[in-house]
Simulated assay, not measured.
Amino acid sequence: MSDTSILVLVGSLRAGSTNRQLAEAAVGVAPEGVDITIFEGLGDLPFYNEDIDVEGSVPAAATKFREAVAAADAVLVATPEHNGTIPAVLKNAIDWASRPFGASPISGKPVSVIGSAYGQFGGVWAQDEARKSFGIAGASVLEEIKLSIPGSVVRFAELHPKDDAEVAAQLADVVRDVAAAVSAEVAA
């Protein structure tokens, strides 16, 4: 497999977030030839506003974000669930990535959504909403590549996801499958 770059977007700004830890664990399980980068800076994006999304005056944080999305072969999203849906920071990132209309960096980009949450379903509502939003934004959503980890607060209270053999194996499968989807898309 040739080198594949995957950009990870973490839907939580909290430093100790289990979804950030999942992203870190994904970096650690990436096979040779797959480069995973966690995007730092979603919290720096201003709320999307078409009045400030004007050529020549796009905020620097938005330009940096769009360039990172454009440079990646695929996007992996690790999101918690906030009040039954996606966090505002993630929805805002989707809005920035979806523009400019017709030439956005997310258009046609393979996207997979994973995550953990405190509840018994592992944040599946948020993950479904993220897939829906990315699809409407024009991404090529990898519907079958998913991972939901319930009970995150308890499960990862004293254990980083990278040290949980089951989670590490599941993440390795997700990363491998996303890279394979990129390779299949390139070959098509």
Rank of each mutant, 00 (worst) to 15 (best):
D128V: 11
L147I: 03
S140W: 11
E144W: 03
V186L: 15
T18V: 13
E81R: 03
L159A: 11
L9A: 04
A74G: 01
E166H: 09
A180D: 15
H82M: 04
V186D: 13
E144T: 15
V186F: 11
A139M: 00
F101G: 01
S152P: 10
N49T: 09
G151L: 13
V77K: 02
N19E: 11
S140F: 13
L147P: 08
A187G: 14
V10L: 05
G108Y: 00
D73S: 06
V174F: 03
P161M: 06
W125D: 14
V178I: 13
A172C: 10
A130N: 04
A181N: 00
L159W: 10
V89W: 10
P31I: 12
P80R: 10
V167H: 09
P150V: 01
V27K: 15
D51V: 02
L142P: 00
K146S: 09
G115H: 06
V54P: 11
I52D: 09
V153G: 14
A93L: 04
V141N: 00
R176Q: 12
P46W: 05
S140N: 13
R176H: 13
I114L: 11
V182F: 04
I94C: 06
A184K: 08
I114H: 07
I38V: 14
R66C: 11
I86E: 09
D173R: 15
S2D: 15
R66S: 11
L22N: 12
D177V: 06
G122C: 05
G102L: 02
A180L: 14
L76R: 03
I86L: 15
R14M: 00
G11D: 04
V58C: 12
G16I: 10
I6W: 02
R176C: 08
S148M: 09
S2W: 12
L76P: 05
P80Q: 11
G56V: 10
E32M: 14
V186M: 11
A93M: 05
E158A: 14
Q120F: 14
G11K: 01
G56K: 15
I145C: 00
I136G: 02
I86T: 13
S17M: 10
V154S: 12
I94D: 06
A139D: 00
A74K: 01
L171F: 11
K91M: 13
K64N: 15
D95I: 03
R99H: 07
G115T: 09
D73F: 06
V174E: 06
V175R: 07
G108D: 03
I36G: 13
R66W: 08
I52T: 06
G122F: 05
F156E: 10
V58N: 14
A26Q: 14
A137H: 00
L45P: 08
L45Q: 00
L76G: 01
I36Y: 04
N19P: 07
G16W: 10
A184E: 12
A184M: 07
W125S: 10
E129Y: 11
N83V: 02
A62Y: 03
P150K: 06
A103I: 07
N19T: 12
A188T: 07
A188H: 15
I6Y: 08
